[in-house]
Simulated scan of single mutants.
Amino acid sequence: MTTETDFEVISAILSAEPISVDKAIAAVESDTAGAVVSFSGVVRNHDGGKPVDRLSYSAHPTAHQVMADVVAKLVAEHPGEAAQPVRIWAAHRIGLLEIGEPALVCAVAAAHRGQAFAVCSELVDRIKAQVPIWKEQFFSDGTVEWVGAGE
Rank of each mutant, 00 (worst) to 15 (best):
P79N: 09
A82C: 02
V70H: 01
P18T: 08
P85T: 08
P61T: 00
V21I: 12
E17Y: 01
A76Y: 09
H78L: 08
I88R: 00
V108L: 02
A24F: 12
I25C: 07
E81A: 12
A35T: 06
V36R: 13
A90L: 08
P51G: 03
V75E: 02
A76N: 06
G100H: 03
Y57S: 07
E101H: 05
G41W: 00
D47E: 07
H112Y: 12
V108W: 02
S40L: 10
A33P: 02
P18M: 12
S56R: 15
Q65C: 00
D69A: 11
L104S: 11
V36W: 12
S20P: 12
H78I: 04
Q115P: 08
A82D: 14
W89F: 15
R44F: 12
A24R: 07
E17K: 06
A33T: 13
A26G: 12
K50Y: 01
A111H: 00
A68F: 08
T62Q: 13
V37H: 01
R113Q: 05
V36S: 11
Q115T: 15
T62K: 10
A27Q: 10
T62E: 09
Q65T: 11
E29N: 01
D47S: 13
A109I: 06
G48Y: 03
P18R: 05
A35G: 05
A111G: 04
V28T: 06
A27C: 09
S30C: 06
C106D: 02
L104T: 02
A72F: 00
A110M: 01
V86L: 10
R87Y: 00
A59C: 11
A111N: 03
R113D: 04
L96H: 13
N45F: 07
K50C: 09
M67H: 09
V70M: 11
G95H: 02
A109C: 00
V37Q: 04
A110E: 03
V75M: 08
S56G: 05
E81G: 04
G80L: 11
A72I: 00
D69Q: 15
P79E: 05
L74T: 06
I99K: 07
Q115R: 13
A59N: 09
V43R: 05
G49A: 07
V43P: 03
V66G: 08
L96W: 07
G48V: 08
G34Q: 10
D47T: 07
V108E: 04
A91V: 09
H46N: 06
W89M: 04
A76G: 15
H60R: 05
A33R: 14
K73H: 08
N45I: 12
L74V: 13
A103E: 02
H46F: 14
T62M: 10
L97S: 15
W89C: 06
I94G: 00
H60M: 06
G48E: 10
A72R: 10
P61S: 06
E17R: 01
G100M: 06
M67A: 14
G34W: 09
A63C: 02
V71M: 15
A82L: 14
A35S: 14
G80M: 00
H112G: 14
V42H: 11
G48S: 11
V42P: 02
R87W: 06
A76T: 09
G95R: 09
V42E: 15
A107G: 13
N45V: 14
V86H: 03
V52K: 00
M67T: 13
L104M: 06
R54S: 15
S38R: 01
G41N: 12
S38Q: 05
L74G: 00
A72M: 09
A72K: 01
